[in-house]
Design a protein around this nucleic acid. Sequence first.
DNA 1: AGCACGCCGACT
DNA 2: GTCGGCGTGCTC
Length: 616
Amino acid sequence: MEIASVVFNSPLPQLNKPFDYSVPERLRSSLAFGMQVSVPFGAAKKPKIGTVVALEESSSYLGTLAEISGIVSATPVLTKQQYNLCKEVALRQMGQIGELLGTAVPKRSVRAEALYVKSGHQGSTVAFETNSSLQRTPTRRYITPGTLDSDSQNHWASLIATNARKLVETGRSVLVVLPDFRELDTFERALQSFDLMAHSVRQSSEDSLKDRWTNHLVATNQVGVIVYGTRLASFAPCNNLETIYLVDDGDESHQEQGSPYWHSREVLLQRSQLENCNIEIISHSPSSEVARLCEIGYLEHVVIKSAKPLVRITSDTERVDQETYSLISRTLSDNKPVLIQIANLGYASALACVKCKEIRRCDSCQGTLWLDPSKTARCRNCKKTFTIQCPCGGSSVKPISLGSNALAEQLARSFPNANIVHSSGLERVTSIESAGTLVIATPGAEPTAANGFALVVLADSLTMLGVPKLRGLEMACQKWSNAVAKSSKDGLVVFVGLSGTIAQQLRDLNFTAVVRDDMLERSELGLPPSTRILSLTASNQHDLSRISSSIEEQLVELSPIPTSVANTIVYGYSIASGSDVATKLRVLVNSVSKSSKHKLPGQRVLFVNMDDHKVI
DNA sequence: AGCACGCCGACT
DNA sequence: GTCGGCGTGCTC
C-alpha cells in the first residue's frame, strides 16, 4: 500500500475530509488502518497528528503528495466500525468527523500505553475486518424491566449481565451505555456478582486519561468483552459486537451538550444498523422517541412481568393531603422508610392571570395550563384548550414558577420526631441505613433503601406535569417511574394531585401508555419525535438573516417555527428528509460562514443543532 | 488553525 | 515607487 488517507481531529469544516499521503518504504510493512501518524501539513509543513482511515494503491488527489513522517501509535487506536460510525453521525448531525474522533478515541496517554505494551496484553490482537457474525437478523427491542429495583431477578442490570455472560463466553461482545455514575455503580455491582469484571472494560468521562487510554487499547484489541460506560461509550471500540444495551435513554445525560449535539439513542440506533447487531433499550418509562419506534414497529416492546407496589392516586391539589399525611406518619411509626419526591427548585411553572394573580387551572381536571407552540393555552393534564382571557376578565397571562423548596421545610416541620434525610442534585445521598427514615428527594437524587421504601409519595405530581416544555410529560414519567422503582415489594406509591386519563393509566403504572398518548398528540401538532426540529444559532443578526434567506430560497424541506430565543431560528423537517436536509444545509452554512463579515478569531459564526428539543 | 497570496492606503 | 494592512482561500 503506497497511499494512506489521513483525517484530523479538527472541528473545521475545511478539514472535514481525508488527506492523502504517500507511505515511505520504511513504514509500508508496519502501517495499518486506525494508526495515528505524524504528517506535514499546511504551508509551514508543520507536523500534525492524524489517523489513517484508508490504505490504497493510488490517490485521486491531483497535486504532489507529501510523505507520512512517522507512526505515533504502534497499534491501531481507531476501528473501522468506529470510523464508519463517526462518519454517519457527522452526516446526520451536520457536524465534522474530526469533532467525533475525539469522542471515539480518548486523549493518548504515553505512559499508560507503554505499560499496556509491556504487559504483553496486545498479544491477543486480532485484525477485525468487519463484524464476523455472519448473516443474522438483528433483534431490536424496548424492554420494561422489573418495576422494582429490589426485585433483583428482574433488575435491568441482572438482565443485561445474564445475557452478557452467555455472549462473552462465545467470543461475542456487548456494549452497555448508561446515564451516569449511579447506574455505572449499579451495573458494576451486577458485573461483580456475575463474576464478569475480568471480561469488562469501562469507558467513562469521569475516569482519568490514563485509565481511559488503557481501557481503550484493551477494548480495541479484544473480543468477547463487555464495554460499558456513560454516553461517550456509544463510540467506544467493541469487536464482534452482538448486542447494544442502552439504559434509560430518556435521561438528560444521554444528550451531548456541545456540537454536533448527538444523543446516545440516535448514535446507538445508527451503530446497530451499521454493525447489524441487536439493540435493546431498557427503561421504566419510555422516551417519546422510543414510544414512536414501538408504534411504527421498529422496536418490539417487551414487558418483564414482575412484582408491583400498590398505587394510590389523589386528585387533591394540596401537595400532601390529610390521608397521605397519616400514611406517612403510620409508616414512620412502624419504623419503615418513606420516600417523598418533590419537584426540582424552579423546575415547574404554570400560567397565572396578570389581573387577579390566580393560577389558571383547567375547569375539568384542575391541571395547570401552558402555552403550546401555537400560543394556545392548554391544560397540561387533559390537553383541553383555553382562551387567554381569564374568567375574572384579565386579558393576559404570565408564566410563574411553583417553587418547591418551601415544601421540604414544611414537611420536615410536619414530622418533628422523624429522622429526616434530604437528597438533591447538589447534596446527593446514595443510600440510607436506618429503617424509620423520611427521605425528601428531588427527581434523580432518590437514595436506595435496603429492601425498598415502604411508602413512596410523589408529592409534586401535578406540578411536574405543568413543566412548560415539550418533554415535560415524558420527563415526569421517567422521574416518577424511577422513584417508584425504589419502593419495596409490598410498598405503596402515592401520586398526589392527578386526575383524568393520566391518573387512570398510572393506576396500573402504565407509563408507556401515558407517553404514547403524548407522543401521538405531538405528532398531530407536527412536533418531535415524529418530526425533527433543528435550531440554527448565529453569533450576529446579520449572518442569521443571510442564512435564513438562503434557506428560504433553497431548502423547501424546512418549515420555519417561531421562537423567542435570541439569535436563533428554528425549523421543522420530516425524518425522511433528514439526510437531504443535513447535506444541503451544510453547503449553505459553509458558504455563509466563509463570507461572514462578523468573524471573530477562533469563534464559529453558525451553530447547527439538528435535533434541538430545548428550543420549544 | 496557521500561513501565503494578493490587492489598496501612507511612507521614505 | 514599496511597505504592510489583513480579507480570502488552501493545506494531501
